[in-house]
Amino acid sequence: MIKAPAKQPNKESSHITKLVVNLLPNEILLQRRQSSKLALINKISVAALVSLIFFASATLGLRISQNMSLKNAEQNLAYAKEKVSSFQDKEAAAVVLKQRLSQIKTLMGADSKITTIFNLIVYLTPVDVQITEASVDKNGSMIMTLTTSSLPSLETLISSLGNKEKNSDLVSKVELQGLSLGKDSIYRMVLKITPKN
C-alpha cells in the first residue's frame, strides 16, 4: 500500500516527499487489529475473574472471622447460663415465694359473705332484741329467730336491714317468715335475710 504524504503549501518543494509504504497485506493488518481486540477482551475477562475470586476470598475470610465471633458469643452465653444455674436455689426460693403469696392473696381475698352478714346482723340488732336461733348457710343466707318484748325494736331492726346505708348495701332481700306474740308478751319473729351477690 502506498500512502501519499500530506501537502505542505508554505514549504519549498526542494525536499524529497516522504512516502509511507506499508507492504503488509490487509489480512495481516486486520488480524493485528483483531488480536489487539482479543487481548483487550481477555484482559478484561481476567480482571473480572480475578476480582470475583478476590471478593469470594474476602467473603470467605469474613465468614471465618464471623464464625469465630459466633463461637465467642456462644461461649459467653454458656458461661452466663452456667452462672445463672449456679443460683438455681435462690431463683427457686423467689419463684416459690411469689407463687405462695399469690395463693395466700387469693384465699384471703375470697369474699366471706357468711361472716360479713352475721356481723352485720349482730351489729344492727338492737340491745333489747335477742337472737335465739340463727343459721347462716354457705351462700350467706341467714334465717334467724328473734325474741323481744318491744315491737318498735323489731321495727327498727327490719327498717335498718332494709336501709341501703345502714346495711352497707349488703342485703338483697329481707323476708318475714313468722311473727307471733306469746302469752308472756314476748314477740317472736323469724326473718330470712338474703345477701347481695
Binding site: I104, L107, M108, A110, S112, I114, T115, F118, Q130, I131, T132, E133, A134, S135, V136, D137, K138, M144
Partner: peptide, 12 residues
C-alpha cells in the same frame, strides 16, 4: 393461718 367459715348455726 387461712380459715374459712363454711356456715354458722346458733342456738340459745
Amino acid at each position: 393461718q387461712i380459715f374459712q367459715v363454711e356456715s354458722i348455726s346458733i342456738k340459745f
